[in-house]
Simulated scan of single mutants.
Amino acid sequence: MKSKRLVVLAIALLMFPQLAQTLYSPALADIGRAFAVGPQQAAQTLSVYFLSFAFGVVVWGRLCDRIGRRPSMLIGLSLYAVASILALTSRTFDTLLVAQALAAFAAAVGSVVTQTLLRDRFNGAQLAQIFSLMGVALAASPAIGLFGGASLVHAFGYRGVLGCLLLLSLGLCLWSWRALPETRPHHLAAVGVFETLWRMLQDLDIWRSALLVALFNIALFSYYSLAPFIFEDLGLSGQSFGYSGVILALGSGLGAWFNKRLLRRGFGSARLIRIAALSGLLGGAGVWLMQGSVLFVLAMLPVVLAFGMAIPNILGSALSNYGDRLGTAGALFGLLYYLLIGVGMMLAAWSQALGLTLLSCAALGLLLARGQGK
């Protein structure tokens, strides 16, 4: 029973960073109008988010090895609430960017600490199944985030989204304070950050995994960054963009469901990642061909399906050789792939070319996946 309660709380905590990103996405156009900035500048708020998130992953991952999983989570969620208040009171775009950077730094606690405590409690095939379950749960995030964000922006403007994120962070902080256990091993060996970093930088499997995580995330989040402006160019409302989240959730849910079924049938992780990359390539080609029509949203289905299939398999096996230093290794691994995501999102915002971004990510992902084993 305790394990089930932990998994439910872990799902909520792991969903938090993704919900924060997807809730924020429908507010980009309104932010552009409120602060008199263009689409490229408004979209850069997501790039800032990912870069700050990357450094947050390192700090929280290291802290959860030093002071524990539970206190790290409580401090991070409290800091997110402070950042949300700063964003709500921002009067300039630069101040909003600073608030976004602080919020992203704090939100990283939901990713790295949650993954670490799950690796504390579960391993092997059981851990792969847990991550697969997480994938099914995360499939709901785009629908909740995009639809909820669009509704809040329509009713209250971008401040409605920021207020919702403030309440969400406070709610999770209270829940964690009441129910989150401490899972850090009592006799955790002291490991050096730079020693671990050097070992990981020489590990080709770590580089491959980090690049794959980054590419599948860039493909997904480039939609959140660029699609609001495509909808605007097509003469469609922000609410229409929010409704598209239902389609994305369907694709991501199907991907997680297929992943779970194929794992039970004996498909290896590497094979599933290759299938996901092919699905992403198909979707990218469809978006590129149909970008002048709202039908491009349907072409996103194979892209989000690919995300739902690939990410649980990559994360489930990435740190199998670092069991004696999960918090630190998880932090550095997260830093690596979130830095790559941040750079990729900057390039996507600069290009304003969704179809080309998706095709590039899928093609590179397929090349990397072909280099893996069975």
Rank of each mutant, 00 (worst) to 15 (best):
M1W: 10
K4W: 11
R5V: 11
R5E: 10
A10M: 10
I11G: 02
F16R: 00
F16K: 00
Q21K: 04
T22H: 10
L23S: 02
P26W: 04
I31W: 01
R33C: 14
P39H: 13
Q40W: 07
A43H: 12
T45P: 03
L46R: 04
Y49H: 14
F50Y: 15
F50W: 14
A54W: 08
V58F: 09
V59G: 09
W60K: 00
L63G: 08
C64Y: 05
R69T: 03
I75F: 11
L77P: 00
S78F: 08
L79R: 01
L79N: 01
Y80H: 01
A81M: 00
A81S: 15
A81Y: 00
V82D: 05
S84K: 00
L86V: 10
A87F: 12
L96R: 05
L96C: 13
L97A: 13
L97Q: 15
A103Q: 05
A103E: 01
A104Q: 10
A104I: 09
A108E: 06
Q115C: 13
T116I: 01
R119Y: 02
D120G: 10
Q126F: 03
L127R: 03
L127S: 05
F131Y: 07
S132E: 06
L133T: 04
A140P: 01
A143R: 00
G148H: 02
H154W: 06
F156Y: 13
F156I: 06
G157D: 03
Y158Q: 04
R159M: 01
C164K: 00
L167H: 01
L168M: 11
S169V: 00
G171N: 01
W175F: 08
A179L: 09
A179D: 04
T183Y: 01
H186S: 14
A189T: 11
A189Y: 07
A190Y: 05
V191A: 14
G192D: 06
V193H: 15
T196L: 03
Q202R: 15
D205F: 13
W207S: 09
A210M: 12
L211I: 09
L211V: 09
L212R: 05
V213F: 08
L215N: 11
L215Y: 11
I218G: 13
L220C: 12
F221T: 09
Y224K: 03
Y224M: 11
E232T: 11
D233R: 13
S237E: 15
S240V: 06
F241C: 03
F241Q: 02
I247L: 12
L248P: 14
L250S: 05
G251M: 07
L254K: 04
W257Q: 10
R265N: 14
R265A: 11
S269K: 14
R271G: 06
L272H: 04
R274I: 01
A277R: 08
S279N: 08
G284L: 02
G286E: 03
V294E: 04
F296H: 01
L298S: 06
A299N: 03
V304A: 09
F307N: 15
G308P: 13
G308Q: 15
A310C: 09
N313W: 08
S317I: 02
A318H: 05
S320M: 08
S320R: 09
G323Q: 10
L326H: 12
G330I: 05
L336N: 10
L340P: 14
G342D: 10
M345R: 02
M345Y: 06
S351M: 09
S351N: 06
Q352S: 13
L356F: 10
L359P: 13
A362E: 04
R370K: 09
G371K: 14
Q372M: 14
Q372V: 03
Q372E: 11
G373T: 12
K374C: 06
